[in-house]
């Protein structure tokens, strides 16, 4: 703890305006927290919350964002969460980087800790068609989701997994420490094997 304080002090002394954007983001985030605290009781955001870009949360469902999350600008787009029913539930873990994420929820979406997202779409329904059943989306911790990718209903992503840019996941199970790529993703490749292939070359 002492080391962290010492490092922070050194940084502040070295360049006093470098941390100004962080302070602005912190103030913006706390404004957002107070706004949603008074406007909608079903939305809870834990303190502190760092906001660099717009945050829009709509709908009658339950939304929970844990502490130390931050919203960075990604393709000039912030975080937007829409819930369609009062039984819908969105849960986001600690220390997530949520830049450019769009969430549309009808049933349940869970995102684990320390997840990084780019400009991507997560929704647990395809459309409002009733023939295709609605299934929850589960994303583990420390997952990296690439740009322009879609995670649709019935997707489960394990811990430490990576989802490539432009891929579409639908009713796929991606295991721990695996890479999912393609449109649609058929099966996931373990990252350990890919790295070992690289070493031989």
């Amino acid at each position: 703890m002492k080391k962290i304080i010492k490092k922070a002090l050194e940084l502040c002394l070295h360049s006093p305006f470098a941390r100004l954007s962080l302070l602005v983001a912190f103030l913006r985030g706390s404004l957002n927290i107070f706004y949603y605290m008074f406007s909608n009781r079903r939305i809870t955001i834990r303190f502190p919350f760092f906001v660099y870009e717009k945050v829009r949360i709509k709908g009658p469902g339950k939304v929970f964002i844990d502490k130390f999350c931050s919203v960075y600008p990604n393709a000039f787009d912030g975080l937007s969460i829409t819930t369609f029913a009062s039984s819908a539930e969105v849960r986001i873990g600690q220390r997530c980087n949520l830049g450019g994420l769009t969430v549309r929820c009808l049933y349940r979406i869970e995102i684990g800790d320390e997840t990084m997202t780019a400009n991507c779409l997560i929704q647990d329904k395809l459309t409002i068609h009733t023939q295709i059943p609605v299934q929850p989306v589960n994303i583990g911790r420390n997952v990296w989701i690439g740009a322009q990718s879609c995670l649709l209903s019935g997707t489960t992503v394990g811990n430490d997994a990576v989802i490539a840019a432009g891929s579409v996941c639908f009713e796929v199970n991606i295991g721990d420490y695996c890479l999912g790529a393609g449109n649609p993703v058929v099966r996931a490749l373990p990252i350990g094997r890919i790295l070992s292939l690289k070493d031989i070359n």
Binding site: L121, Q123, L126, T127, H129, I132, C150, L152, V168, F170, N183, P184
Partner: peptide, 8 residues
Amino acid sequence: VVVGPGAI
């Protein structure tokens, strides 16, 4: 017909 998200 239903065309899924991200389909070309």
